Amino acid sequence: MTRPLLTRRAALGAGAVTLFAPAIVRAGTQDIPMAEQQAIVAPQERANISSFREIDWRDHFDNLDKVTLIADTVSKALHYWAVDGADYRLYPTSVPRSPELTKTGYTEIVRKKVGPSWTPTASMIEHDPSLHPMPPGPDNPLGTRAMYLSWPAYIIHGTHDTRKIGRKSSSGCIGLFNQQVEELYELCPIGTQVKLL
Rank of each mutant, 00 (worst) to 15 (best):
A14K: 02
T162N: 14
K168W: 06
K113N: 10
G175K: 12
L142N: 01
T144G: 12
R97V: 12
L187W: 04
P152V: 11
I174G: 07
K112I: 06
V41W: 04
A23D: 11
M124V: 01
L176N: 08
L101S: 04
G28T: 10
G28C: 03
L19N: 03
I174Y: 07
T104N: 01
G13P: 02
E108I: 07
P141L: 04
P120G: 09
D65L: 05
T68L: 03
G85S: 00
P120Q: 07
K76D: 06
L176A: 09
S75L: 12
S94F: 03
R3S: 08
I24G: 03
M34T: 15
C173G: 10
M124H: 09
R3Q: 08
V41Q: 08
P136M: 11
R145H: 14
A27E: 06
T192E: 05
S170C: 11
W57Q: 09
T73F: 15
P120C: 12
N63Y: 03
G15D: 00
Q180G: 01
T18H: 00
T7N: 07
S117Q: 04
G175H: 13
T102H: 13
I32W: 12
P99T: 06
A23Q: 09
I165K: 05
V25W: 10
H79D: 01
K113G: 00
D128S: 14
L69S: 04
F61W: 00
A21F: 11
I190H: 01
H157V: 11
I155E: 03
A10Q: 02
P141R: 09
T119D: 05
T119L: 03
P116I: 00
M34A: 15
I190L: 07
L131V: 10
S171M: 07
A146V: 07
S117V: 05
R53N: 14
T18D: 01
I156T: 08
S123E: 15
H79P: 09
R26A: 15
G175F: 02
S75C: 13
A153M: 06
P135S: 14
G13W: 06
V194N: 13
I190P: 03
R8A: 15
L69I: 14
L64N: 14
N48W: 12
D59Q: 02
K168A: 13
A39N: 00
G105A: 09
D84C: 06
T159N: 05
E100M: 10
A27G: 13
I174S: 02
E100S: 14
D59G: 05
L149Q: 03
C173H: 04
V41Y: 06
Q44M: 15
P152Y: 02
D56Q: 10
P189S: 06
L78T: 07
G175Y: 07
E182T: 07
N63E: 11
L149E: 02
A27K: 03
T7S: 14
H157T: 03
E100P: 07
T2A: 01
P138R: 14
F52N: 08
